[in-house]
Design a protein around this nucleic acid. Sequence first.
DNA 1: GCAGTTATCAAGGACTCCATCTAAAGGCGT
DNA 2: ACGCCTTTAGATGGAGTCCTTGATAACTGC
Lengths: 367, 367
Amino acid sequence: MTAHLAGGDLNRLRQLNADSVIRVLRDEPPQTLTELSRRVGLSRASTEDVVQELLEVGWVAEVEPAAGGVGRPARRYRFRADAGHLLGVDIGGHKVLAVVTDLDGTVLHSRQVPVTPELGRSERLAATDRVIGRALRAAGLTGDRLWGAGVATTGLVDGTGRVMLSEALTEWTGVDLAGHLRDRVGGAVRVENDCKVAALAETWRGVARHASDMVFILAGWRTGAGLIIGGKLHRGFGNAAGEIGALPAAGWQRAPGHLRARPDQGDVFAAARAGDKTAMAALRRYVKDLAQGVSALVLTLDPELVVIGGGFSRSADVFLEPLRAELDRWCLRTPEIRVSTLADEGVALGAAKLALDMSSPQLRTRR
Amino acid sequence: MTAHLAGGDLNRLRQLNADSVIRVLRDEPPQTLTELSRRVGLSRASTEDVVQELLEVGWVAEVEPAAGGVGRPARRYRFRADAGHLLGVDIGGHKVLAVVTDLDGTVLHSRQVPVTPELGRSERLAATDRVIGRALRAAGLTGDRLWGAGVATTGLVDGTGRVMLSEALTEWTGVDLAGHLRDRVGGAVRVENDCKVAALAETWRGVARHASDMVFILAGWRTGAGLIIGGKLHRGFGNAAGEIGALPAAGWQRAPGHLRARPDQGDVFAAARAGDKTAMAALRRYVKDLAQGVSALVLTLDPELVVIGGGFSRSADVFLEPLRAELDRWCLRTPEIRVSTLADEGVALGAAKLALDMSSPQLRTRR
DNA sequence: GCAGTTATCAAGGACTCCATCTAAAGGCGT
DNA sequence: ACGCCTTTAGATGGAGTCCTTGATAACTGC
């Protein structure tokens, strides 16, 4: 029924504790053992034991002790983000982007190539290979040195890493992305929908770091959503969670059209910001439609936070307030709204997080 | 961030394992140690140890071994549902219902009194007290012998057991239900929205027993929803999850009205079943509106299952197929739809489950 | 009655966590 | 410079949990 944390083995207990230590160390500045033990809830002795093990495996490193203070100086430990590398790939309609990150989600190297939605399947795959190759070369890595790789793309993705349905990209439905990538990077590959991993990225390195219930809105020429529920990415039974846009009443199919239908093809956001009346009216209609779907998500889930990402998020200043006002009309409790700061790399970063989540459990301890 | 299963203590490991054993024993017919150990993933010896402990505390009991079969007959153990009792209370507009159940969710005693939505606060509370008293007397229990009590009512409920907002009941907003009940039954009381606990009941004793992602629809003169996500009840950050009905576009505010607006005030479902044209048309309009909101929930969450409960569920035969067809129009993947079989007691049963979830952890083991 | 099968029970070992104690390292006052 | 105080490091022994192994017990079928 639930993915219940079956107790089991003693080993498992140690793993859980090692997990806790790593989590604390990753979120906080370097800690002493005493601080750590208080944080994790273990005794000092056990904490020391765990840390010792993590040191040996390379997950944590020691930093020189802080000067000053009374008593014997305590050793301090930090998370070793450089212990491994992750590859995150974003295969979109207009660009393919690959990033190599450390375990903390810092982007070390980033490469992209422009593509078009009309590109054929094999050309898009070739572009992907090319970008991955460049990113890896820039990092001085080979595929098999990676801890894992994550791939994000538009459309519905099934559990085995195959694209079930993609409306935006030609010849993309049915492509076996996991299979294609597996040969190019060593071993572990996971594939997921781009909105979903963008949500993941926000909880990892973005503006939703401490939210356990969050709705991510991809606002761009496509509109989509990704959901974090109970601190975890919610995929849905058929991997189709967050697809509220399929409902006409949600307004998402129509929403971006309001912005496109302008006589001059300039930046509607800039025009609206400058006071252009027709641009402002178009934006109002966009927000009104967008808000329908967002309201549905918010009323359904009652999240702590809504994060706006996607291409339009860089212009969010002009529509954030109207959006908030529109949500106030419908929602019982309008959540806080934040704008993503991850820019173009959000999706690729989330893909890297996918890779991390997949790879960590095995490597956490000696055994 | 997440409510992470902090490892901690060795004791905790044993608790997790005891949990697993109990879960298996509750879901399955009496098991032998060998079967159990395979199920739980522990060695036979450890399983025996756990079971021994659970025997002493009273959570499990031995049944006489099965006859027949080769080899030494194995001892068999069953979950002792009669080890404790739970109280579940459903405070609605038209009735107040209290049930006393065993730990398995079997209703042992059930009492109810009719009320009206217009009843004042103190009268409704008095009716509640009366019903609880009767149910407890019938069970031969006093409040302090209960393992816990759960209360469900319409409206939004906050974390402390206070009704934040109730539109259907007069003088109900602001009432401190947990406080009121705490004096009458011993100790632990939890209060929750009725749709939410009805969903809980379906995963416990209803038709959603093995679904970890489920949407429960309360279909009646009010329409509401409760969500099970990842095997757990999803409350939302402000306890307002599932309130999609607040969105006009979802159609739920209007939906039941189609059924009420008939010239003769008979049973519209019976009439539709008999072929009455206007009744069928009204039902069609009802389903069309209902499906908008349900589609929004389904597209958002992509659940494994949708369960229809509430007053109309007993007439679901006449609108289940139309509903399914309507969902097919909007949803990418229409989930399985089942009809609740818990009848009037669903909400009260879910309230009892609330009580169980709250009370079990402490009492699980000796220490 | 005997072989075959399966379960119970006990003993020993490994691992994890904890409490406690001593040694070490630095600041501070005299 | 010296001892005192505070805090941490590191080591030891004990308790709890799980696992493996092997001896013993109970029942069936021939």
